[in-house]
């Protein structure tokens, strides 16, 4: 149980040799080595990720003048964001984004769980599991923009779906009005799901692949019906994987500006697009404020995670 990070689980000298070997001496003073191994990378990440991102919170309280931040405290960005004294459309978009992100996470969770369950448990030991999983990774290799744009082909008014439906209707002699699929929230969900489903599948699969066969067997032996085995045994075991996947999808949707841009219509914008626009409109405090809100939500999720499972567990998924 302590394996992987147990220190000194086993005494290397049960018999007790009095003269330490060089290796032992090194093992007794490993601090320097560990520091040299870890510290530069941590410093890199802190310097280039944490410090800039932390600065965002500060910038959101600064004023921008002539495309530069001026050290002058103001709450203007948050007034705009939360519609104090102005139109509160950003709040609407924030709420909409949260709604879309939650819906998307739930859909991805159900589908991702099912796929991972099949590949990780039903196909256990099959040599085709890996190729099947890799199929789900192919989208990562193609341009995200083009991949999103290509959803036009099935969804537009003269697209594959409408043409098929139209021909069917003509065959049956029914009247047919092309469905409006593109530029709707439905299209946004379709695009988001195809992008973020793999992010859900992989962590759940990893957790799934470690569910012990004997545990499943035991549940079956004790008379558990398959459904109960899934609910009572499998789900609790893969919950950390499901959580990681959910955070991936949720935060991913919160930060996605491409899918709603190409597939959404008026009234389907998501908050990250507004951040993009604020950047290009030199409203950097607002961009920083929007980023701060997204980050705050992500942070709440991470802290909740740490409370329930311990952050360390991430490393073991």
């Amino acid at each position: 149980m302590e394996r992987g990070h147990g220190v000194g689980v086993l005494d290397p000298h049960p018999g007790g040799s009095p003269i330490p070997t060089p290796a032992e001496r090194f093992a007794e003073h490993p601090r320097l080595l560990h520091l040299l191994q870890i510290a530069p990378t941590l410093a890199f990440v802190v310097a280039f990720v944490f410090i800039p991102v932390a600065s965002i919170f500060v910038w959101s309280f600064l004023r921008v003048e002539n495309a530069r931040f001026v050290p002058e405290f103001t709450l203007q960005a948050y007034y705009v964001l939360f519609g104090v004294g102005e139109s509160a459309y950003l709040v609407d978009i924030l709420v909409r984004t949260l709604r879309v992100a939650v819906t998307q996470t739930l859909i991805a969770l159900v589908l991702g769980f099912a796929v991972a369950y099949f590949v990780g448990i039903k196909m256990r030991g099959s040599r085709y599991a890996l190729p099947l999983l890799l199929l789900f990774a192919i989208p990562f290799l193609t341009s995200y923009l083009l991949r999103t744009l290509s959803w036009w082909l099935p969804l537009q008014e003269r697209g594959v779906i409408n043409v098929i439906l139209g021909n069917l209707a003509a065959l049956l002699g029914l009247p047919f009005e092309p469905l409006k699929l593109l530029f709707t929230e439905f299209a946004v969900h379709v695009g988001l799901l195809s992008t973020y489903l793999p992010f859900m599948i992989f962590p759940i699969y990893l957790a799934m692949s470690r569910v012990d066969e004997t545990v499943l067997q035991a549940s079956a032996d004790l008379g558990g019906r398959p459904r109960h085995t899934v609910l009572r045994v499998v789900i609790p075991l893969v919950l950390p994987g499901m959580l990681i996947g959910s955070v991936f999808v949720f935060v991913g949707v919160m930060g996605d500006s491409v899918v709603p841009l190409f597939l959404g219509g008026p009234g389907n914008s998501l908050i990250a697009q507004l951040m993009d626009q604020a950047v290009s409109g030199q409203r950097w405090s607002l961009a920083a404020a929007i980023a701060s809100v997204i980050l705050a939500i992500a942070l709440v999720l991470i802290i909740a995670w740490e409370r329930f499972f311990g952050l360390r567990r991430i490393g073991e998924i």
Binding site: M1, R127, R210, D212, V215, L237
Partner: peptide
């Protein structure tokens, strides 16, 4: 459940084995 997860998690995932 927690300890079972802990125990079972410390296995190499199948795809790495492959």
């Amino acid at each position: 459940g927690d300890s079972v997860i802990y125990m079972t998690l410390n296995r190499e995932p199948a795809f790495l084995e492959e």
